[in-house]
Design a protein around this nucleic acid. Structure first.
Length: 532
RNA sequence: GCCCCCGUAGCUCAAUUGGAUAGAGCGCUUGGCUUCGAACCAAGAGGUUCCGGGUUCAAAUCCUGGCGGGGGUACCA
């Protein structure tokens, strides 16, 4: 149990179950190691003033619990808590004992809930954009966090490898090969020309079957995409689900339709079949079978959701780009209809590309854009990941390639990685310490010692919090915070060359720091460097 | 027209989801390497959180009316 959970439990004895107990870590040490605002809520409930309530709680904690050094009520109703050093020492020992498991939730296999997280899912009609990358990092790390928190996670890339856009891709290749005239809606870009030139025989053979040609090209584009996301960006998927083979091929589109018919969610109008998505909060009903009898893309999506449900997922997280926000209501309706109990949709916002302060219009159709791959090549995996994860997914971010790429992008990761390198370089000079007794740690008493231990102890709490809030940037914030605290420690305190018992205790502290850095980097998918 | 998102330091972004003194990086000024790595640390300048009203112990955050920017709004995918 983390320190925070421990404190929560103690306060719960006082407050009862009627209120939420929040424990925060104040920025200034003068406001305690931990702080709670629960007195405000209790005061309202009991109709007394917040400060009176806070004082009551403070004196309760001071007298009944042995984990606090002191607890203080502070106007207008905060309760600030300083825990005893032993609490931190115990946590330190726990970190060493757990090692790379520190921060993980232990839940037995049979009790783990299955959750699927679907992200990127870009059409295999060309290179990935920066927005794809944004969702990619987000989904990858969120998946890692959920995994750590005891969920049985599947990261899914849904490949739309059939349908109109694939046929358009086929036609685009034919146009690039000058076999048919060019049309406005076609994909245009170097990658189309390049593929066409490299596969002249195939183009010739399939020139009367653009869909088949498109599928063939899509296969290659997907391979290229996988190479970028896995090898270059460090994003890993458990499953690439093919719309063509896994959904259409296994009859899920028809199954979804008959399920809806059975549930009387379908009606006919104007010769088409409509799904009553308005019954689940959509602003209008949606066509699933067109007048000509062709299923819409939306029905295929419903089939996909049904397939996910049938494979045992009651919980699904979908990360979409900004152009899909209109899709949210109807896909949520479908989730309910197929029986997925917990369905979350996250929308990432666009990345606006600037060049020397001026906006560069990006268009996939016209082939004008900076690809995700170019970004990663330019600044490196670690910088790209950290930088994108730092920024909240729902802000429209401006990205100036020419101006910002060097220092602004790299600095935050370097700052964090450098802290870990400094810690590592101390350990390189000594033998790994054995796990000490609590009494050996008593010399860890300076402000810097305590602050570092306190910060380390937050790691499991952050993981837990992110697993329910999906607030991924708290991880990068924490990384920056931990690095800052460690750099401060490093400048002010020494490890080697101190008295023997101090060296031993501090080495324990450094070991624990390295464990937390390692585990944190592993969740974030950035490299733990030995030197830089 | 209707719907969604955003507006915070010169620039790019934070702010533990309603908490205390609004913080980081880049840029700017100053100081710190004969001891564990200076890709670091310490100090400073820089803010009417777009504007007006409201809600409450407490608002950058919630509600409301404006202003400005981005996106969406197909029997396309």
């Amino acid at each position: 149990m983390s320190i925070k959970e421990n404190i929560t439990r103690v306060i719960r004895n006082f407050s009862g179950n009627s209120v939420d107990i929040d424990i925060s870590v104040p920025e200034h040490e003068s406001l305690g190691h931990y702080s709670t605002t629960v007195a405000f809520l209790l005061a309202k409930e009991k109709h007394i003033s917040p400060i009176d309530m806070a004082e009551e709680l403070a004196s309760y904690l001071n007298t009944t619990s042995d984990i606090f050094d002191r607890v203080e009520a502070k106007a207008p109703g905060f309760v600030n808590m300083w825990v005893k050093p032993e609490v931190f020492f115990r946590e330190l020992k726990f970190i060493l004992k757990e090692g790379d498991r520190y921060g993980k939730r232990k839940i037995s296999r049979s009790r783990r809930k299955k959750v699927q997280i679907e992200f990127i899912s870009a059409n295999p009609t060309g290179p990935l954009t920066l927005a794809n990358g944004r969702g990619g990092f987000l989904g990858d790390v969120l998946g890692n966090v959920l995994q750590m928190s005891g969920f049985d996670v599947e990261k899914e890339y849904y490949v739309n490898d059939t349908g109109n856009q694939i046929e358009t891709l086929g036609n685009s290749i034919l146009a690039a090969s000058r076999l048919i005239p060019y049309e406005e809606t076609f994909y245009k870009g170097e990658y189309v020309d390049y593929w066409a030139r490299a596969h002249v025989a195939i183009v010739k053979r399939l020139k009367h079957d653009p869909l088949k040609l498109g599928k063939r090209a899509a296969k290659d584009f997907l391979k290229a995409t996988r190479n970028v996301i896995e090898k270059k960006a460090g994003i890993y998927f458990d499953r690439y689900t093919s719309e063509d083979n896994d959904i259409h091929g296994k009859g899920y589109v028809k199954k979804a339709l008959s399920l809806f018919q059975k549930n009387r969610s379908i009606y006919e109008s104007d010769g088409a079949l409509w799904l009553k998505t308005t019954e689940y909060g959509d602003d209008k009903d949606r066509v699933v079978l067109k007048k000509d009898g062709v299923p819409t893309y939306f029905l295929a999506d419903a089939g996909h959701y049904l397939e996910t449900k049938k494979r045992g997922f009651d919980s699904k997280i979908l990360i979409l780009g900004p152009d899909h926000h209109g899709y949210m209501a109807r896909i949520q309706a479908v989730a309910s209809m197929v029986g997925i109990q917990k369905s979350d949709v996250m929308i990432t916002q666009a990345v606006r590309l600037l060049e020397n302060g001026r906006e560069v219009k990006m268009s996939k159709r016209k082939g004008m854009f900076v690809t995700f791959e170019e970004l990663v090549d330019e600044v490196g995996k670690d910088s790209a990941r950290f930088f994108f994860l730092m920024i909240t997914p729902e802000t429209h971010m401006d990205f100036d390639m020419s101006l910002a790429k060097e220092r602004t992008l790299k600095n935050p990761v370097f700052y964090v990685q450098y802290a870990a390198v400094r810690a590592k370089s101390i350990m390189r000079k000594v033998k790994k310490p054995a796990i000490p007794d609590l009494s050996d740690l008593a010399v860890l008493s300076t402000e810097e010692d305590i602050r570092l231990m306190k910060t380390l102890a937050q790691f499991p709490e952050i993981i837990l919090s992110v697993s329910s809030s999906y607030n991924i940037r708290r991880l990068t914030q924490y990384a920056l915070e931990l690095a800052k605290v460690f750099h401060g420690f490093y400048e002010k305190e020494r490890v080697l060359g101190e008295e023997k018992n101090v060296v031993r205790a501090r080495l324990t502290l450094i070991s624990a720091t390295l464990i937390v850095f390692k585990n944190l980097f592993s969740v974030l998918g950035i490299s733990f460097l030995k030197k830089m």
